[in-house]
Design a protein around this nucleic acid. Structure first.
Length: 819
DNA sequence: AGCTGTGGCAGGGAGG
DNA sequence: CCTCCCTGCCAC
């Protein structure tokens, strides 16, 4: 096979400064007959601190008047964030960074072009090229895809093609393993630990696996591989399988020399470290790809769900299943440290437990993964990948597909950052009510549609078109959902509309995302600035119509509705009238902006911006914000604040004082209802220990208790502390002013028979929690309420709850400036 | 290898 | 004491 001349050395050209470099003349030889873009070179480009992006120069042939090939200059400086490969084998010397282009048929014509994301996908592509000669038969258009070519190839072949399918058409299998360990926790590398139970939800599959007494571990593993291959599932569903089950199984297989060959083509899974972000939380996990199958980890689906809901008690299988109502009453529960004993004494019970695990996983998956499933039907992404990646890469994949289809070069992403965010303000603090929450429906998408927002790099104008189309599709799906009779059809349409919603809401985020190919920070700022204006307009309209505005944040406002409306009809306290009043605010706002009614509450304790409590008409008390009750706070404090807020909203001040006195006495007596869990703090380690140490060395951060304890623990147990681990600890020593990181112990080291927590410190903590309520009382009343002195008895007589108005900063001052 | 954004609050350490 | 700065948690 003749080959094109090597591209000019990309490393020499301009690998690091990100500017367009000179182009070597011999590149011209690579232009194809059809005049489409051709790859000339591929080079790594350093971006930001640790980021690496590929930069690919694209060229277009111009048809010269004499028919000769000439480069079109205006497009030579475009850069591409993906690797382009010819599937004839574009690469040599991977991953050293210099790649040579070769053509398929010798005339400089790339017949097949595969766009590939990421180094891992590049590896896949090379593998794919080596393995699949059949791909040469396909027409180029079919190959303009983004994502791992191996996955794409499998996606297009046979039953893994999901287009036009429903989730029920897939053969799904749920997997769960139970392990026996001689230590406190399973250690996959330790020979004395072992897999004792493998539960597959398939009703015939598990029978062969559940009774291990006749199966040594290697045989069990081989049997499991065999069952999975026989069952041949399209999808394997697990809860936390990436971080536990698969990881553990793979390590055990390695240990025993068993090939974990569960791929459709008989291959073993390819593993790579990956991470995913859910709001502020970054989860690192060992991802694997099984050829021809999709892995759905319901643990991630649960976390993704909680980003919006924010009220899950935990992400474990049991907590999640209970939350969604999937845990049956007869469900078998087994603590992790009892598994080994139970296996010896009551294996039947353990079997039931393992089967309940897979049953719950199945229900979680059915409930939470359908939006990812429908997304694969519109995105160039396999199901498992759509469930594993964030929204920005999903949006981008749609853009890339269309740009490739149109044979257009992609823009380079902008440098910089967004500067404007949402408008937040608080107008009234204290106990108020009743209140109503009004919010602008889809604020940012509405603004982007109304104002024709379009990133500068988007030369095809895809951004507004796609946004409009997805909005229309969602509207249509919701309309059909309303008229559908069949519950099953309704559910499918709901999943569909929610997957549109995920994409629609991500458009704004991708504008301000520094790594997005189609980012545009000015446009992002335009959207948020307009959002601020509209929220202020809404606040103005509420005030004008007699409402008392309490708090506003980004796209919604809490307010006390007026007694009556303009026509003197009663509003406050009447659910329908309040809703009408709220929705009528739409009239005061520009076209394309709709105000929705999003809840009414009996009482609200307005504390600070983004921090408040709501008492519903059903007596349910909801907290928002981290300053009142955060998950990391000591439980006794959370409990105290929760109960105190309820008592304040119910105006039971005697009860409030009693609560304080009782809590104080319990702290002093070391009388903890839940043992150490009552007063331990639990924090998440966001960095590795190495990173922490390096930052401390560099003076960029100070020592803190959780990392110090993690370090001690790692030293003792020889276990690596991982990013995302949660550490529970408490404070020891004498006196309330101790330095925490020098006086702390792991919660597990506390003993009720010899309590050594720092009582003075925890009394001070209690007073810190009580201090939150100071703004709601006159100072001397506050002192009496939260005081242990009870010599003359306590009476709430004469104590009034206080509210306070907060003027928006800066406005009245400007008006008062004298000439 | 992967990763949507800004705004706001509490806790804690270090240094004045 | 106070202020500054960092991290973690949270709202939207």
């Amino acid at each position: 096979m003749p080959s094109a001349p090597p591209a000019s050395d990309p490393q020499q050209a301009d690998a690091s400064d990100g500017k367009a470099g000179e182009t070597a003349a011999e590149d011209v030889a690579l232009f194809g007959r059809d005049g489409a873009e051709r790859i000339v070179d591929v080079q790594p480009l350093l971006r930001g601190k640790h980021r690496e992006q590929a930069k690919v120069r694209l060229y277009r042939r111009s048809a010269g008047s004499d028919g000769s090939k000439q480069r079109v200059t205006e497009e030579t400086d475009e850069f591409y964030p993906f690797f382009f490969l010819s599937d004839a084998g574009l690469l040599e010397g991977f991953p050293a960074g210099r790649y040579r282009c070769e053509t398929l048929d010798g005339d400089g014509f790339f017949r097949h072009l595969v766009a590939v994301r990421s180094w891992g996908a590049l590896w896949d592509a090379v593998h794919h090229v080596e393995q699949n000669t059949g791909s040469r038969e396909r027409r180029p258009d079919e190959l303009y895809l983004v994502g791992s070519p191996v996955q794409q190839y499998l996606l297009q072949s046979g039953r893994t093609c999901l287009k036009g399918m429903e989730p029920g058409d897939l053969h799904r299998l749920q997997l769960d393993i139970e392990t026996r360990s001689t230590g406190d926790f399973p250690n996959a590398e330790r020979p004395e630990d072992e897999i004792i139970l493998v539960a597959l939800s398939d009703n015939r599959g598990w029978e062969r696996l559940l009774d291990r007494r006749h199966l040594p571990e290697p045989v069990l593993l081989e049997e499991m591989v065999q069952v999975i291959r026989e069952k041949d599932p399209d999808v394997i569903e697990t809860h936390n399988g990436f971080q536990f089950d698969f990881d553990y199984i793979r390590t055990r297989c390695q240990m025993h020399g068993v090939a974990f060959a569960v791929g459709r083509d008989g291959s073993t899974p390819r593993a790579f470290d990956s991470s995913i972000r859910f709001a502020e939380r970054v989860v690192d996990f060992p991802a694997i790809k099984i050829a021809g199958r999709h892995i759905i980890d319901t643990y991630f689906r649960v976390m993704a769900y909680d980003v919006f809901k924010r009220d899950l008690p935990g992400y474990g299988l049991k907590a999640a299943a209970t939350y969604f109502g999937f845990a049956s009453e007869e469900r078998t529960y087994v603590e992790g440290d009892q598994i080994t004993d139970l296996w010896n004494e009551d294996p039947e019970r353990l079997r039931e437990y393992a089967l309940d695990d897979v049953r719950e996983t199945r229900q979680l998956a059915a409930h939470l993964s359908s939006s990812a499933f429908y997304l694969t039907q519109m995105l160039p992404m396999p199901y498992g990948q759509a469930a594993r990646t964030g929204p920005a890469s999903k949006i981008e994949s749609m853009f890339v597909r269309e740009y490739l289809r149109e044979r257009r070069a992609m823009p380079r992403s902008q440098w910089g950052s967004q500067s404007v965010g949402g408008y937040t303000d608080i107008f009234l603090t204290g106990a108020v009510g009743p209140v109503v929450y009004a919010d602008v429906e889809s604020l940012y998408p509405s603004i982007m549609l109304a104002d024709g927002i379009q990133p500068k790099g988007d030369t095809l104008g895809l951004f507004p078109r796609l946004l409009r189309r997805l909005t229309d599709l969602r509207f249509e799906a919701k309309r059909q959902m309303k008229v559908a009779d069949d519950e099953h059809v309704k559910g499918a349409l709901d999943a569909r509309q929610s997957s549109y919603k995920i994409l629609i809401n991500s458009f704004y985020g991708s504008l301000g995302f520094s790594l997005s190919t189609f980012n545009d920070f000015e446009e992002a700022d335009k959207v948020t600035r307009r959002g601020q204006e509209l929220l202020r307009e809404m606040i103005g309209a509420i005030k004008e119509r007699g409402g008392e505005v309490i708090e506003a944040d980004t796209d919604g406002v809490f307010f006390v509705p007026p007694e009556t409306d303009a026509a003197d009809r009663p509003v406050r306290g009447d659910a329908d009238a309040e809703q009408r009043f709220t929705e009528n605010l739409t009239d005061a706002l520009p076209d394309g902006i709709r105000v929705g009614f999003d809840g009414r509450y009996r009482k609200m304790l307005s504390y600070k911006k983004k921090n408040y409590a709501l008492l519903g008409y059903d007596g349910d008390l909801k907290f928002k914000g981290s300053s009142l009750v955060a998950r990391s706070s000591e439980r006794f404090g959370r409990r105290f604040v929760r109960q105190a807020v309820r008592l304040i909203l119910e105006n039971d001040l005697e009860g409030l004082h009693d609560l304080y006195v009782e809590t104080r006495a319990a702290v002093e007596a070391s009388d903890w209802p839940e043992g150490v869990r009552s007063f331990a703090r639990t924090e998440t380690l966001k960095d590795t220990l190495q990173q922490y140490e390096a930052d401390v060395e560099a003076g960029e951060r100070t020592r803190t208790a959780p990392y110090e304890l993690a370090r001690r623990q790692a030293g003792q147990e020889g276990r690596a502390v991982r990013k995302g681990d949660r550490i529970s600890y408490y404070i020891t020593g004498q006196g309330k002013g101790v330095t925490a990181f020098k006086n702390c112990k792991l919660a597990d080291d506390w003993s009720p028979s010899a309590p050594d927590e720092n009582t003075a410190y925890y009394l001070a903590r209690l007073d810190r929690f009580a201090e939150k309520f100071a703004p709601f009382f006159e100072e001397h009343d506050f002192r009496r309420l939260f005081s242990p002195e009870d010599l003359f008895g306590f009476s709430a007589e004469g104590i009034e709850l206080q509210t306070e108005r907060h003027e928006p900063a800066g406005t009245e001052f400007d008006d008062d400036v004298p000439f």
